[in-house]
Amino acid sequence: MKTQLIINNELINNEWALVVPEISIENVKKQAGKVVQFKTTGEEIPSHEDIEKTILPEASKVLLPLKLYLLKKVELKKKYSEIGLWIYSHEEINLFKQLDKDINDFPVVGVMIEKFADGRIFSLGNLIRRKLKYKNDMRALGDILKDQLFFLKRSGFTSFLIKEGRDPIDAIKGLNDFTYSYQGTLNEPPLWKKR
């Protein structure tokens, strides 16, 4: 079984086909703090056209970019038996409010980062849990290595797709780098309450 997917401290066969639009580079630099968020490179991507042209794989379970789903949901719901959604780290969680049904009707929601150092994923994870009250599997996608896993887990992520070419078995250990943490998270009270 060749897989890079970690769930519950185990390698799990990955049945979900990850759909990623091909990006035709368009360099748009934006001011800080504007509604459009940044990719780490500063480009606004993918474009509407890129999303429209996304190649749809033959599969039964797919993880789709949220914008693609919003654009073609009728067709997509017909084509696939199960659909999960993901957003880029430079997108807003408010996008989920445009869904035709409850976010909890989707079994998987993911956040994609293109660079290891992109820490927006942690805040987005927290907001998806806290503000959108998402209860199902939340997946970290993209440039995911052993060294983010402990933080991702504590930011509400429950599954982790390790970057191709990196040892996923070694990465599992990263989930448990620390026995204790000082601050509280959504699932865990702060340490001082236990002291």
């Binding site: 942690f122 927290n126 933080f151």
Partner: peptide, 8 residues
């Protein structure tokens, strides 16, 4: 210290 949300 190791605040998970603000690591990067």
């Amino acid at each position: 210290t190791f605040h998970p949300e603000f690591a990067l």
